[in-house]
Write a protein that binds this DNA or RNA. Structure first.
Lengths: 240, 240
DNA sequence: CGAACCTTTCGACCGCGATCGAACCGTCAA
DNA sequence: TTGACGGTTCGATCGCGGTCGAAAGGTTCG
Protein backbone atom coordinates (compact mmCIF):
# COMPACT_ATOMS: atom_id res chain seq x y z
CA UNK A 1 0.00 0.00 0.00
CA UNK A 2 2.73 2.41 0.93
CA UNK A 3 4.78 1.48 -2.09
CA UNK A 4 2.02 2.50 -4.44
CA UNK A 5 2.04 6.06 -3.22
CA UNK A 6 5.79 6.31 -3.65
CA UNK A 7 5.51 4.95 -7.16
CA UNK A 8 2.69 7.31 -8.02
CA UNK A 9 4.60 10.30 -6.73
CA UNK A 10 7.50 9.72 -9.08
CA UNK A 11 5.48 8.39 -12.00
CA UNK A 12 3.12 11.33 -11.83
CA UNK A 13 6.05 13.64 -12.38
CA UNK A 14 7.12 11.68 -15.43
CA UNK A 15 3.54 11.38 -16.60
CA UNK A 16 3.14 14.93 -17.80
CA UNK A 17 3.98 15.35 -21.50
CA UNK A 18 6.01 18.50 -20.97
CA UNK A 19 8.04 16.96 -18.16
CA UNK A 20 8.49 13.72 -20.07
CA UNK A 21 9.85 15.70 -23.00
CA UNK A 22 12.24 17.46 -20.67
CA UNK A 23 13.50 14.18 -19.24
CA UNK A 24 13.74 12.60 -22.68
CA UNK A 25 15.76 15.54 -23.91
CA UNK A 26 18.18 14.98 -21.05
CA UNK A 27 18.54 11.30 -21.88
CA UNK A 28 21.77 12.00 -23.57
CA UNK A 29 24.12 12.83 -20.78
CA UNK A 30 24.48 16.49 -21.56
CA UNK A 31 23.16 19.22 -19.33
CA UNK A 32 20.78 21.68 -20.97
CA UNK A 33 19.64 25.16 -20.02
CA UNK A 34 16.13 26.00 -18.97
CA UNK A 35 15.31 27.69 -22.26
CA UNK A 36 16.62 24.80 -24.31
CA UNK A 37 14.42 22.52 -22.28
CA UNK A 38 11.48 24.85 -22.75
CA UNK A 39 11.94 24.49 -26.49
CA UNK A 40 12.26 20.73 -26.17
CA UNK A 41 9.17 20.51 -24.02
CA UNK A 42 7.15 22.69 -26.33
CA UNK A 43 5.81 24.96 -23.59
CA UNK A 44 6.56 28.46 -22.38
CA UNK A 45 9.53 29.37 -20.22
CA UNK A 46 7.36 29.98 -17.18
CA UNK A 47 5.70 26.60 -17.41
CA UNK A 48 9.06 24.96 -17.94
CA UNK A 49 10.46 26.66 -14.87
CA UNK A 50 7.64 25.26 -12.79
CA UNK A 51 8.25 21.78 -14.12
CA UNK A 52 11.98 22.01 -13.59
CA UNK A 53 11.41 23.09 -10.03
CA UNK A 54 9.26 20.07 -9.32
CA UNK A 55 11.65 17.66 -10.99
CA UNK A 56 14.59 19.09 -9.11
CA UNK A 57 12.76 19.03 -5.80
CA UNK A 58 11.98 15.37 -6.34
CA UNK A 59 15.67 14.77 -7.07
CA UNK A 60 15.03 13.59 -10.58
CA UNK A 61 17.14 16.46 -11.87
CA UNK A 62 20.20 18.27 -10.66
CA UNK A 63 20.78 21.91 -11.38
CA UNK A 64 24.04 23.73 -11.77
CA UNK A 65 24.14 27.51 -11.85
CA UNK A 66 26.56 28.95 -14.33
CA UNK A 67 26.36 32.65 -14.90
CA UNK A 68 22.90 33.60 -15.95
CA UNK A 69 22.23 30.11 -17.22
CA UNK A 70 21.05 27.15 -15.25
CA UNK A 71 22.10 23.77 -16.51
CA UNK A 72 19.86 20.83 -15.71
CA UNK A 73 20.83 17.19 -15.95
CA UNK A 74 19.44 13.86 -14.79
CA UNK A 75 20.21 13.40 -11.13
CA UNK A 76 21.51 9.86 -11.46
CA UNK A 77 21.82 6.89 -13.80
CA UNK A 78 18.89 5.44 -11.88
CA UNK A 79 16.63 8.03 -13.42
CA UNK A 80 17.91 7.20 -16.89
CA UNK A 81 17.34 3.54 -16.25
CA UNK A 82 13.81 4.26 -15.10
CA UNK A 83 13.08 6.20 -18.27
CA UNK A 84 14.55 3.38 -20.32
CA UNK A 85 12.29 0.86 -18.67
CA UNK A 86 9.24 3.04 -19.21
CA UNK A 87 10.15 3.37 -22.87
CA UNK A 88 10.61 -0.37 -23.04
CA UNK A 89 7.08 -0.93 -21.75
CA UNK A 90 5.78 1.74 -24.07
CA UNK A 91 7.50 0.11 -27.04
CA UNK A 92 6.26 -3.32 -26.08
CA UNK A 93 2.55 -2.65 -26.28
CA UNK A 94 1.43 -2.57 -29.88
CA UNK A 95 0.77 0.80 -31.47
CA UNK A 96 0.65 3.14 -28.53
CA UNK A 97 -1.07 6.31 -29.62
CA UNK A 98 0.22 7.03 -33.11
CA UNK A 99 0.60 4.18 -35.60
CA UNK A 100 4.37 4.07 -35.56
CA UNK A 101 5.33 7.56 -34.46
CA UNK A 102 7.04 9.00 -37.49
CA UNK A 103 10.01 10.34 -35.63
CA UNK A 104 13.25 11.68 -36.92
CA UNK A 105 15.05 9.30 -39.21
CA UNK A 106 18.42 10.32 -37.83
CA UNK A 107 17.38 9.25 -34.35
CA UNK A 108 16.22 5.95 -35.73
CA UNK A 109 19.58 5.30 -37.37
CA UNK A 110 21.93 6.03 -34.52
CA UNK A 111 21.54 7.88 -31.23
CA UNK A 112 22.78 7.88 -27.69
CA UNK A 113 20.75 6.44 -24.86
CA UNK A 114 22.15 8.15 -21.78
CA UNK A 115 25.67 6.69 -21.86
CA UNK A 116 25.48 4.11 -24.59
CA UNK A 117 24.46 3.63 -28.22
CA UNK A 118 20.95 2.92 -29.48
CA UNK A 119 19.03 2.87 -32.72
CA UNK A 120 19.90 0.72 -35.70
CA UNK A 121 23.57 1.18 -34.93
CA UNK A 122 23.09 0.17 -31.30
CA UNK A 123 21.23 -3.04 -32.01
CA UNK A 124 23.49 -3.76 -34.98
CA UNK A 125 26.56 -3.59 -32.80
CA UNK A 126 24.89 -5.67 -30.13
CA UNK A 127 23.92 -8.26 -32.72
CA UNK A 128 27.42 -8.40 -34.15
CA UNK A 129 29.04 -8.68 -30.72
CA UNK A 130 26.60 -11.41 -29.76
CA UNK A 131 27.03 -13.33 -32.99
CA UNK A 132 30.79 -13.34 -32.56
CA UNK A 133 30.52 -14.64 -29.05
CA UNK A 134 31.90 -11.48 -27.50
CA UNK A 135 28.89 -10.70 -25.35
CA UNK A 136 25.67 -12.44 -24.40
CA UNK A 137 22.46 -10.56 -23.77
CA UNK A 138 19.09 -11.62 -22.47
CA UNK A 139 16.03 -9.88 -21.17
CA UNK A 140 17.33 -9.87 -17.62
CA UNK A 141 21.08 -9.75 -17.86
CA UNK A 142 24.21 -9.90 -19.90
CA UNK A 143 27.90 -10.72 -19.75
CA UNK A 144 31.18 -10.39 -21.57
CA UNK A 145 32.52 -13.80 -22.51
CA UNK A 146 36.13 -14.89 -22.08
CA UNK A 147 36.84 -14.34 -25.76
CA UNK A 148 35.09 -11.02 -25.43
CA UNK A 149 37.52 -9.88 -22.77
CA UNK A 150 40.49 -10.54 -25.02
CA UNK A 151 38.68 -8.92 -27.93
CA UNK A 152 38.19 -5.69 -26.05
CA UNK A 153 41.70 -5.66 -24.64
CA UNK A 154 43.14 -6.19 -28.12
CA UNK A 155 41.03 -3.28 -29.23
CA UNK A 156 42.72 -1.22 -26.56
CA UNK A 157 39.62 -0.82 -24.45
CA UNK A 158 40.02 -0.99 -20.71
CA UNK A 159 36.78 -2.37 -19.34
CA UNK A 160 37.81 -2.17 -15.72
CA UNK A 161 36.03 0.62 -13.95
CA UNK A 162 37.48 3.06 -11.43
CA UNK A 163 35.41 1.55 -8.63
CA UNK A 164 37.38 -1.09 -6.77
CA UNK A 165 36.92 -4.75 -7.66
CA UNK A 166 34.16 -4.01 -10.07
CA UNK A 167 33.11 -6.69 -12.49
CA UNK A 168 32.59 -6.20 -16.19
CA UNK A 169 28.86 -5.99 -16.48
CA UNK A 170 26.56 -5.79 -19.42
CA UNK A 171 22.96 -4.79 -19.27
CA UNK A 172 20.31 -5.15 -21.97
CA UNK A 173 18.26 -2.09 -22.88
CA UNK A 174 15.17 -2.51 -25.01
CA UNK A 175 15.51 -0.22 -27.97
CA UNK A 176 12.59 2.15 -28.28
CA UNK A 177 12.55 2.31 -32.07
CA UNK A 178 13.94 -1.06 -33.05
CA UNK A 179 12.10 -2.98 -30.33
CA UNK A 180 15.14 -5.16 -29.82
CA UNK A 181 17.88 -5.19 -27.23
CA UNK A 182 21.02 -3.14 -27.47
CA UNK A 183 24.04 -3.03 -25.20
CA UNK A 184 23.93 -0.90 -22.04
CA UNK A 185 25.63 -0.92 -18.67
CA UNK A 186 29.32 -0.41 -18.08
CA UNK A 187 30.38 -2.14 -21.28
CA UNK A 188 27.87 -0.17 -23.31
CA UNK A 189 29.28 3.06 -21.92
CA UNK A 190 32.83 1.97 -22.77
CA UNK A 191 31.77 1.14 -26.31
CA UNK A 192 30.21 4.55 -26.83
CA UNK A 193 33.31 6.25 -25.50
CA UNK A 194 35.44 4.16 -27.85
CA UNK A 195 33.39 5.17 -30.87
CA UNK A 196 33.55 8.83 -29.92
CA UNK A 197 37.24 8.85 -29.05
CA UNK A 198 38.26 7.23 -32.32
CA UNK A 199 36.02 9.49 -34.36
CA UNK A 200 33.81 6.67 -35.58
CA UNK A 201 30.76 8.72 -34.71
CA UNK A 202 30.14 12.36 -33.85
CA UNK A 203 27.43 13.92 -31.74
CA UNK A 204 24.91 16.22 -33.38
CA UNK A 205 23.87 19.55 -32.05
CA UNK A 206 20.61 19.72 -30.13
CA UNK A 207 19.83 16.09 -30.70
CA UNK A 208 20.60 12.71 -29.29
CA UNK A 209 21.26 11.53 -32.83
CA UNK A 210 24.85 10.75 -33.79
CA UNK A 211 26.47 10.71 -37.20
CA UNK A 212 28.51 7.74 -38.35
CA UNK A 213 31.68 8.95 -40.03
CA UNK A 214 32.97 7.20 -43.16
CA UNK A 215 36.01 6.05 -41.21
CA UNK A 216 33.72 4.75 -38.47
CA UNK A 217 31.59 2.81 -40.90
CA UNK A 218 34.70 1.25 -42.43
CA UNK A 219 36.17 0.34 -39.05
CA UNK A 220 32.98 -1.23 -37.81
CA UNK A 221 32.63 -3.23 -40.98
CA UNK A 222 36.24 -4.34 -40.81
CA UNK A 223 36.33 -5.24 -37.14
CA UNK A 224 32.85 -6.53 -36.57
CA UNK A 225 31.39 -7.08 -39.98
CA UNK A 226 28.59 -4.75 -39.10
CA UNK A 227 26.72 -4.01 -42.29
CA UNK A 228 24.77 -0.87 -41.64
CA UNK A 229 22.13 -1.46 -44.23
CA UNK A 230 21.14 1.88 -45.65
CA UNK A 231 21.73 5.53 -45.01
CA UNK A 232 24.80 4.86 -42.93
CA UNK A 233 27.19 7.50 -44.08
CA UNK A 234 24.38 9.63 -45.43
CA UNK A 235 24.80 12.03 -42.58
CA UNK A 236 21.22 13.19 -42.31
CA UNK A 237 21.56 16.63 -40.70
CA UNK A 238 18.83 15.74 -38.23
CA UNK A 239 16.17 18.29 -38.96
CA UNK A 240 14.67 17.74 -35.50
CA UNK B 1 10.40 14.68 -28.91
CA UNK B 2 8.35 11.68 -29.89
CA UNK B 3 9.82 9.58 -27.13
CA UNK B 4 8.60 11.97 -24.48
CA UNK B 5 4.99 11.50 -25.43
CA UNK B 6 5.32 7.74 -25.31
CA UNK B 7 6.95 7.96 -21.91
CA UNK B 8 4.29 10.29 -20.61
CA UNK B 9 1.50 8.07 -21.84
CA UNK B 10 2.71 5.12 -19.81
CA UNK B 11 3.97 7.06 -16.84
CA UNK B 12 0.72 8.97 -16.58
CA UNK B 13 -1.09 5.68 -16.10
CA UNK B 14 1.28 4.70 -13.32
CA UNK B 15 1.16 8.18 -11.85
CA UNK B 16 -2.30 7.95 -10.36
CA UNK B 17 -2.27 6.77 -6.73
CA UNK B 18 -5.11 4.33 -7.21
CA UNK B 19 -3.57 2.78 -10.29
CA UNK B 20 -0.14 2.68 -8.69
CA UNK B 21 -1.62 0.81 -5.75
CA UNK B 22 -3.22 -1.64 -8.15
CA UNK B 23 0.06 -2.25 -9.92
CA UNK B 24 1.95 -2.51 -6.67
CA UNK B 25 -0.54 -5.06 -5.39
CA UNK B 26 0.12 -7.14 -8.48
CA UNK B 27 3.87 -6.98 -7.98
CA UNK B 28 3.80 -10.40 -6.50
CA UNK B 29 3.11 -12.62 -9.43
CA UNK B 30 -0.41 -13.60 -8.42
CA UNK B 31 -3.49 -12.56 -10.33
CA UNK B 32 -6.11 -10.71 -8.30
CA UNK B 33 -9.77 -10.05 -8.87
CA UNK B 34 -11.21 -6.63 -9.53
CA UNK B 35 -12.70 -6.34 -6.04
CA UNK B 36 -9.49 -7.36 -4.36
CA UNK B 37 -7.75 -4.68 -6.37
CA UNK B 38 -10.43 -2.17 -5.46
CA UNK B 39 -9.67 -2.84 -1.83
CA UNK B 40 -5.95 -2.56 -2.45
CA UNK B 41 -6.37 0.69 -4.34
CA UNK B 42 -8.61 2.18 -1.67
CA UNK B 43 -11.27 3.38 -4.11
CA UNK B 44 -14.72 2.22 -5.10
CA UNK B 45 -15.40 -0.66 -7.43
CA UNK B 46 -16.59 1.60 -10.23
CA UNK B 47 -13.47 3.70 -10.11
CA UNK B 48 -11.32 0.59 -10.00
CA UNK B 49 -13.07 -0.79 -13.04
CA UNK B 50 -12.28 2.34 -14.96
CA UNK B 51 -8.64 2.16 -13.94
CA UNK B 52 -8.38 -1.51 -14.80
CA UNK B 53 -9.84 -0.83 -18.21
CA UNK B 54 -7.24 1.80 -18.94
CA UNK B 55 -4.37 -0.31 -17.69
CA UNK B 56 -5.51 -3.30 -19.72
CA UNK B 57 -6.02 -1.22 -22.84
CA UNK B 58 -2.47 0.05 -22.51
CA UNK B 59 -1.29 -3.55 -22.17
CA UNK B 60 0.10 -3.00 -18.71
CA UNK B 61 -2.32 -5.61 -17.38
CA UNK B 62 -3.76 -8.82 -18.74
CA UNK B 63 -7.20 -10.00 -17.79
CA UNK B 64 -8.47 -13.54 -17.57
CA UNK B 65 -12.16 -14.25 -17.21
CA UNK B 66 -12.99 -17.07 -14.88
CA UNK B 67 -16.63 -17.53 -14.02
CA UNK B 68 -17.98 -14.32 -12.66
CA UNK B 69 -14.55 -13.21 -11.56
CA UNK B 70 -11.96 -11.40 -13.61
CA UNK B 71 -8.37 -11.99 -12.69
CA UNK B 72 -5.88 -9.27 -13.49
CA UNK B 73 -2.13 -9.70 -13.64
CA UNK B 74 0.83 -7.72 -14.90
CA UNK B 75 1.09 -8.12 -18.65
CA UNK B 76 4.79 -8.89 -18.69
CA UNK B 77 7.97 -8.93 -16.62
CA UNK B 78 8.83 -5.68 -18.37
CA UNK B 79 6.07 -3.97 -16.44
CA UNK B 80 7.38 -5.36 -13.18
CA UNK B 81 10.86 -4.19 -14.02
CA UNK B 82 9.53 -0.74 -14.81
CA UNK B 83 7.79 -0.57 -11.45
CA UNK B 84 10.97 -1.74 -9.75
CA UNK B 85 12.97 1.00 -11.39
CA UNK B 86 10.43 3.64 -10.41
CA UNK B 87 10.57 2.40 -6.83
CA UNK B 88 14.34 2.51 -6.99
CA UNK B 89 14.27 6.17 -7.99
CA UNK B 90 11.67 6.87 -5.36
CA UNK B 91 13.80 5.20 -2.70
CA UNK B 92 16.90 7.04 -3.82
CA UNK B 93 15.70 10.57 -3.24
CA UNK B 94 15.78 11.38 0.46
CA UNK B 95 12.47 11.31 2.33
CA UNK B 96 9.91 11.35 -0.38
CA UNK B 97 6.60 12.45 1.06
CA UNK B 98 6.34 10.83 4.46
CA UNK B 99 9.41 10.75 6.73
CA UNK B 100 10.09 7.05 6.38
CA UNK B 101 6.69 5.65 5.44
CA UNK B 102 5.84 3.49 8.41
CA UNK B 103 4.75 0.51 6.38
CA UNK B 104 3.97 -2.95 7.45
CA UNK B 105 6.77 -4.54 9.42
CA UNK B 106 6.13 -7.91 7.81
CA UNK B 107 6.75 -6.45 4.38
CA UNK B 108 9.95 -4.91 5.62
CA UNK B 109 11.20 -8.24 6.90
CA UNK B 110 10.59 -10.46 3.91
CA UNK B 111 8.45 -10.12 0.82
CA UNK B 112 8.34 -11.07 -2.81
CA UNK B 113 9.23 -8.62 -5.55
CA UNK B 114 7.48 -10.04 -8.60
CA UNK B 115 9.45 -13.29 -8.94
CA UNK B 116 12.20 -12.91 -6.40
CA UNK B 117 12.82 -12.10 -2.74
CA UNK B 118 13.11 -8.65 -1.23
CA UNK B 119 13.14 -7.00 2.16
CA UNK B 120 15.64 -7.72 4.91
CA UNK B 121 15.66 -11.36 3.85
CA UNK B 122 16.29 -10.47 0.22
CA UNK B 123 19.22 -8.17 0.85
CA UNK B 124 20.51 -10.51 3.55
CA UNK B 125 20.64 -13.41 1.12
CA UNK B 126 22.21 -11.23 -1.55
CA UNK B 127 24.84 -10.09 0.94
CA UNK B 128 25.62 -13.62 2.05
CA UNK B 129 25.84 -14.91 -1.51
CA UNK B 130 28.10 -12.02 -2.45
CA UNK B 131 30.33 -12.38 0.57
CA UNK B 132 30.83 -16.07 -0.17
CA UNK B 133 31.78 -15.34 -3.75
CA UNK B 134 28.74 -17.05 -5.17
CA UNK B 135 27.36 -14.05 -6.98
CA UNK B 136 28.53 -10.55 -7.79
CA UNK B 137 26.16 -7.61 -8.00
CA UNK B 138 26.60 -4.06 -9.07
CA UNK B 139 24.34 -1.22 -9.98
CA UNK B 140 24.22 -2.22 -13.61
CA UNK B 141 24.68 -5.93 -13.69
CA UNK B 142 25.44 -9.15 -11.93
CA UNK B 143 26.77 -12.65 -12.46
CA UNK B 144 27.08 -16.07 -10.93
CA UNK B 145 30.71 -16.95 -10.34
CA UNK B 146 32.29 -20.30 -11.17
CA UNK B 147 32.15 -21.36 -7.53
CA UNK B 148 28.58 -20.13 -7.49
CA UNK B 149 27.59 -22.50 -10.26
CA UNK B 150 28.88 -25.48 -8.30
CA UNK B 151 27.26 -24.15 -5.15
CA UNK B 152 23.84 -24.04 -6.74
CA UNK B 153 24.21 -27.39 -8.44
CA UNK B 154 25.25 -28.99 -5.14
CA UNK B 155 22.15 -27.44 -3.66
CA UNK B 156 20.15 -29.23 -6.30
CA UNK B 157 19.12 -26.08 -8.09
CA UNK B 158 19.04 -26.16 -11.87
CA UNK B 159 19.80 -22.67 -13.03
CA UNK B 160 19.43 -23.45 -16.72
CA UNK B 161 16.25 -22.01 -18.10
CA UNK B 162 13.86 -23.58 -20.55
CA UNK B 163 14.82 -21.10 -23.26
CA UNK B 164 17.51 -22.49 -25.48
CA UNK B 165 21.13 -21.55 -24.86
CA UNK B 166 20.23 -19.13 -22.12
CA UNK B 167 22.95 -17.88 -19.84
CA UNK B 168 22.72 -17.70 -16.09
CA UNK B 169 21.98 -14.10 -15.44
CA UNK B 170 21.67 -12.06 -12.30
CA UNK B 171 20.16 -8.67 -12.10
CA UNK B 172 20.34 -6.21 -9.21
CA UNK B 173 17.11 -4.73 -7.92
CA UNK B 174 17.24 -1.78 -5.56
CA UNK B 175 15.28 -2.68 -2.47
CA UNK B 176 12.55 -0.19 -1.73
CA UNK B 177 12.70 -0.46 2.05
CA UNK B 178 16.32 -1.37 2.65
CA UNK B 179 17.69 0.93 -0.03
CA UNK B 180 20.24 -1.68 -0.97
CA UNK B 181 20.47 -4.20 -3.76
CA UNK B 182 18.93 -7.61 -3.65
CA UNK B 183 19.07 -10.44 -6.17
CA UNK B 184 16.69 -10.43 -9.15
CA UNK B 185 16.67 -11.84 -12.63
CA UNK B 186 16.67 -15.51 -13.50
CA UNK B 187 18.81 -16.53 -10.54
CA UNK B 188 16.64 -14.53 -8.17
CA UNK B 189 13.57 -16.31 -9.45
CA UNK B 190 15.24 -19.69 -8.98
CA UNK B 191 16.20 -18.77 -5.44
CA UNK B 192 12.65 -17.82 -4.53
CA UNK B 193 11.32 -21.03 -6.00
CA UNK B 194 13.89 -22.99 -4.01
CA UNK B 195 12.83 -21.34 -0.75
CA UNK B 196 9.16 -21.99 -1.46
CA UNK B 197 9.64 -25.58 -2.65
CA UNK B 198 11.65 -26.55 0.41
CA UNK B 199 9.26 -24.87 2.79
CA UNK B 200 11.79 -22.33 3.98
CA UNK B 201 9.26 -19.58 3.51
CA UNK B 202 5.52 -19.47 2.97
CA UNK B 203 3.40 -16.88 1.26
CA UNK B 204 0.91 -14.89 3.26
CA UNK B 205 -2.65 -14.27 2.23
CA UNK B 206 -3.47 -10.93 0.64
CA UNK B 207 0.05 -9.65 1.03
CA UNK B 208 3.38 -9.76 -0.69
CA UNK B 209 4.93 -10.52 2.69
CA UNK B 210 6.31 -14.00 3.27
CA UNK B 211 6.87 -15.87 6.52
CA UNK B 212 10.20 -17.50 7.28
CA UNK B 213 9.61 -20.92 8.74
CA UNK B 214 11.78 -22.16 11.64
CA UNK B 215 13.19 -24.82 9.35
CA UNK B 216 13.91 -22.20 6.73
CA UNK B 217 15.72 -19.97 9.19
CA UNK B 218 17.82 -22.91 10.34
CA UNK B 219 18.69 -23.96 6.79
CA UNK B 220 19.64 -20.47 5.72
CA UNK B 221 21.82 -20.04 8.74
CA UNK B 222 23.44 -23.42 8.21
CA UNK B 223 24.06 -23.12 4.49
CA UNK B 224 24.76 -19.44 4.13
CA UNK B 225 25.37 -18.15 7.60
CA UNK B 226 22.56 -15.69 7.15
CA UNK B 227 21.82 -14.20 10.53
CA UNK B 228 18.35 -12.76 10.29
CA UNK B 229 18.66 -10.29 13.10
CA UNK B 230 15.28 -9.96 14.75
CA UNK B 231 11.70 -11.02 14.27
CA UNK B 232 12.67 -13.78 11.91
CA UNK B 233 10.45 -16.61 13.03
CA UNK B 234 8.03 -14.23 14.69
CA UNK B 235 5.50 -14.76 12.01
CA UNK B 236 3.80 -11.40 12.08
CA UNK B 237 0.36 -12.15 10.63
CA UNK B 238 0.68 -9.13 8.36
CA UNK B 239 -2.20 -6.94 9.39
CA UNK B 240 -2.07 -5.13 6.06
C1' DC C 1 24.43 52.93 -14.61
C1' DG C 2 21.14 51.09 -17.98
C1' DA C 3 19.87 47.69 -21.46
C1' DA C 4 19.37 43.00 -22.82
C1' DC C 5 18.86 38.45 -21.49
C1' DC C 6 17.78 34.23 -18.76
C1' DT C 7 15.00 32.56 -15.26
C1' DT C 8 11.75 32.53 -11.69
C1' DT C 9 7.43 34.09 -9.10
C1' DC C 10 2.69 35.50 -8.89
C1' DG C 11 -2.00 35.34 -10.32
C1' DA C 12 -5.83 33.89 -12.83
C1' DC C 13 -7.92 30.87 -16.07
C1' DC C 14 -9.60 26.59 -17.56
C1' DG C 15 -9.92 21.84 -18.89
C1' DC C 16 -9.01 17.16 -17.91
C1' DG C 17 -9.77 13.31 -15.26
C1' DA C 18 -10.61 10.97 -10.76
C1' DT C 19 -14.44 10.01 -8.11
C1' DC C 20 -18.90 8.17 -6.61
C1' DG C 21 -24.19 7.19 -7.02
C1' DA C 22 -27.18 4.65 -9.60
C1' DA C 23 -28.44 1.63 -13.00
C1' DC C 24 -27.23 -2.15 -16.04
C1' DC C 25 -25.22 -6.93 -17.65
C1' DG C 26 -23.46 -11.82 -16.43
C1' DT C 27 -22.77 -15.57 -13.57
C1' DC C 28 -23.71 -18.67 -9.81
C1' DA C 29 -26.64 -20.98 -6.36
C1' DA C 30 -31.10 -22.34 -4.72
C1' DT D 1 -37.10 -18.27 -11.94
C1' DT D 2 -35.48 -15.57 -8.27
C1' DG D 3 -32.12 -13.54 -5.55
C1' DA D 4 -27.35 -12.49 -4.48
C1' DC D 5 -23.00 -11.17 -6.05
C1' DG D 6 -19.20 -9.57 -9.09
C1' DG D 7 -18.17 -6.33 -12.51
C1' DT D 8 -18.94 -2.69 -15.80
C1' DT D 9 -21.24 1.51 -17.84
C1' DC D 10 -23.37 5.99 -17.56
C1' DG D 11 -23.78 10.57 -15.82
C1' DA D 12 -22.69 14.39 -13.03
C1' DT D 13 -19.72 16.61 -9.83
C1' DC D 14 -15.62 18.87 -8.50
C1' DG D 15 -10.92 19.74 -7.41
C1' DC D 16 -6.25 19.56 -8.82
C1' DG D 17 -2.78 21.09 -11.77
C1' DG D 18 -0.98 22.64 -16.32
C1' DT D 19 -1.01 26.77 -18.86
C1' DC D 20 0.21 31.50 -20.01
C1' DG D 21 0.41 36.87 -19.17
C1' DA D 22 2.62 40.10 -16.48
C1' DA D 23 6.14 41.40 -13.54
C1' DA D 24 10.09 40.79 -10.70
C1' DG D 25 15.03 38.74 -9.44
C1' DG D 26 19.85 38.05 -11.22
C1' DT D 27 23.54 38.26 -14.38
C1' DT D 28 26.35 39.93 -18.13
C1' DC D 29 27.80 43.44 -21.16
C1' DG D 30 28.40 48.01 -23.07
Amino acid sequence: MGAGLHIAEVANLVGDPARANILAALLDQRALTASELAYAAGVSAQTTSSHLGKLAQAHLLEVEKQGRHRYYRLASPLVAQMLESVMAVSAHGPRRGRPVARCDEGLRTARTCYDHLAGRLGVGLADALTQRGIIALDHDGGEVTATGLTFFSELGVDLTAPAKSRRVFCRPCLDWTERRYHLAGHVGACLLRLCLDRGWITRQRDSRAVTITPAGAAQMRAILGVALAEAETTAVPASL
